[in-house]
């Protein structure tokens, strides 16, 4: 990285090496993904939030409702269960990838030490991968009825 002087306005600008092609392609795909996953998530996340947190309400939350929507483990899967499972699989997949990439952008801006950045990103990717997997396994396995 070198410092150059831009003559007319006498401003200093930074010139950086061009990004490698593979990295450039990844960043382009990530940029496109953020826009379209975000626009889809506006509808998915707000509909989920307003239904479960506002209309149903956390204080009225009952375990039976979760079982009714996801389907009890081992029980035959109804068309409603399929709808809710697809709905939540879409939210988990899109939101976790959207959140991971957003976190990556923030971490890249503020963690200037390369080693710290890599460590933080490995940890964040691991946490998000485990949490996403837990959610997907629980959804596809169905809620368990309490005995």
């Amino acid at each position: 990285m070198t410092i150059q002087t831009l003559n007319p306005a006498q401003r200093t600008i930074r010139t950086v090496k061009p990004m490698p092609l593979a990295r450039n392609r990844f960043e382009r795909m990530a940029w496109i993904f953020m826009r379209f996953s975000g626009l889809i998530l506006v509808f998915l996340s707000l509909s989920h939030f307003w239904l479960q947190h506002l209309i149903v309400g956390t204080h009225q939350l009952q375990f039976g409702q979760t079982v009714a929507r996801w389907g009890a483990a081992g029980a035959p899967v109804t068309i409603e269960n399929v709808f809710w499972r697809l709905y939540y699989v879409a939210i988990i997949a899109l939101a976790m990838l959207h959140g991971l990439n957003g976190f990556r952008q923030v971490a890249y801006d503020y963690l200037n030490n390369r080693g710290v950045y890599r460590g933080v990103m490995i940890a964040a990717t691991g946490v998000i991968a485990v949490v996403s997997l837990m959610g997907l396994v629980a959804l596809l396995g169905g809620a368990t009825i309490v005995k």
Partner: peptide, 27 residues
């Protein structure tokens, strides 16, 4: 706001998944 929502989602998704893994923990 994005980091806040991400932090919540990580706890929310793992918490809800206990309805399958361990209903007692979930309740």
């Amino acid at each position: 706001s994005g980091l806040g929502v991400l932090l919540f989602l990580v706890t929310h998704i793992s918490g809800m998944s206990f309805s399958y893994f361990n209903p007692k923990v979930h309740e």
